[in-house]
Amino acid sequence: MNQKYLVPLAVVFLLFLVAYTGVEGAGLQGFFGIFVPYAAVVAFFGGFFYRVTKWARSAVPFRIPTTCGQQKSLPWIKQNCIDNPNTGTGVFLRMVLEIFLFRSLFRNTKAAFNRSEKNELTYSWEIFLWVGALAFHYAFLTVIIRHLRFFIEPVPGWIKFLEYLDGIAQVGLPGLFLSGVVLLAAVLFLLARRIYDNKVSHISLAADYFPLFLIIGITISGISMRYFTKVDIMGIKELTMGLVTFNPVIPEGISGLFYGHVFLVSILFAYFPMSKLMHMAGIFLSPTRNMANNNRAVRHINPWNYDVKVHTYEEYEDDFREKMIEAGLPVDKKE
């Protein structure tokens, strides 16, 4: 047990209870159903904009390509066009693969001591973090897009199609959405990795556990509302449609579980810009991935460069020519 994960865990429980008791006990539906979601949206977009513009202002003095393949060289040496691109197209492809398939993570290796008598350090390919991350991100994306059904009326066909694909297993009623199961399994795996893998556990801080517990809380409350405890879905859509049409209403009879779910989601959105979750925007700005490796072909000038005041040898000689001639030193220009 360690406080780096016990504190975030307790905080997530508390946050949920604050909203649940606030609604069920104190009747603060308006605060948790209208004010908090709006505040979270403002905090998310404001913070997001602030963080990205701050990053955009920082100078990029030189290119730091970290390469995973042969760079462009002599014509008879085969270049790796995607892993070591020298053109914009190559960089674009590398970024697309990075953003959609997490290619850098795919190369993840792990260091461990061999179990043989020699007990030597070996490196092996470790794919499970990549699998878990891919499952987690795509399941979360699907879940978020599916939730648009609460924010659009009439619901467009492409969201219905996504719901159809997600529920294609037709397990039980209401039909099981695969994305929910995958999301919960993946996030639990990512948590287990942080807790049980000593090396990862050692470098994990509360800021690493908090989003995980928050997402676990959101997932469990969501799954529970759909499959187990049930909530008034019509009232909920009335509330969410009220939010997006700026006519907020609080319908009667929505369970506190829903407000707990919404409060955790609001916290996640508001916390997003000030946390590690900003890798969502940051991945686009990865300096080792988003620049072409053309250092040898194109001259890059440091934008930080200012006009340096120089004193050339010619000027020096102009200053001291007579003294130099007197002392018998050679000069370039003799008057």
């Binding site: 977009f45 990205v52 924010f151 659009i152 009326e153 449609m241 997006v244 049409t245 925007a281």
Partner: peptide, 20 residues
């Protein structure tokens, strides 16, 4: 950044002026 913000605010502008 602008494209992201426009897309992410999609539920707000698609419902603009509507009631459901």
């Amino acid at each position: 950044l602008v494209i992201f913000i426009i897309i992410a605010l999609f539920p707000f502008w698609i419902n603009f002026g509507k009631t459901a």
